[in-house]
Amino acid sequence: MKKTIILLLSCTMLVLAGLTANAFAENDINLSLEPAVVQISAFYNGTTVKVTGQIPATAEAVVRVTGSGEELHLKKKGKVGGLLWMNTGDVSFENAPTVVMLYTPAAITDLEASPVSPFSFHALKEKVEILPATEDKDFLFGEFLKLKQKDGLYITHQDAVSYGPIENDTKTFTVEMTIPTMMKPGRYTVELAAAQNGHLIGIASKEMKIEMIGFPAELTKLAFGKPIFFGVMAVLIAIGAGLFTGILFKSKGGAH
């Protein structure tokens, strides 16, 4: 009888501890962005966005930024006649995010082997569709990663998460995200994954927006809204600049 009571009490305590842990995880995993809206003006040269938040004291934070999925048409290179390298066919990538930037803490060196593996590039490969389906997906996805990494749009920043002091069984984290200039205007998802004791205990997300303002915004509106006018204007200004320089050089007697 005594043994049964002890067993029941132990089970109850374990269940309660588990429930507390779950409730704790859900309530205390959060993030915020500063700024949440990145503005591209005429002299924009990329920027940094600060991601801060809170996770359980013994957890690790991984932050991921992803752009919307796009359809990409690419050319495959191969050897022709056993000698010359050139384009040998077309391949399409569907649902490939425009950007994937990962920020991992020092404690996680191998993302694929960690509880946060759904954030890894390997997991992304399963979501991306490559057409025609007969193509070697592993090989092409590897080359696609290299292409995106070259532009700095698919990147993993290791040891990029810093933690604050522990208070009430929670700790704060900070990630300084570098926004490359090649990240186009649009909406991006910033996700935080928290891992604890070998498990993924929760995910939180926020939206980040990149938008053009001022001169770049007006010029883009003109280029897409009134393309013929834009083309003629570009030509006239170019001719004007050419004539102006010509006259300037003449008046200066052909300065070198």
């Binding site: 083309g231 003629v232 570009a234 200004i237 600049a241 320089t245 010509g246």
Partner: peptide, 30 residues
């Protein structure tokens, strides 16, 4: 070509062209 590209493909970056122009018009004179 410029007018055709601007109209059909929206690929003329006027800011880029202007920056190149500043250098190339002087370069052409020299």
């Amino acid at each position: 070509v410029t007018i055709m590209q601007a109209n059909s493909n929206h690929t003329v970056d006027f800011v880029l062209a202007l920056l190149l122009l500043l250098g190339s018009t002087i370069g052409a004179q020299v």
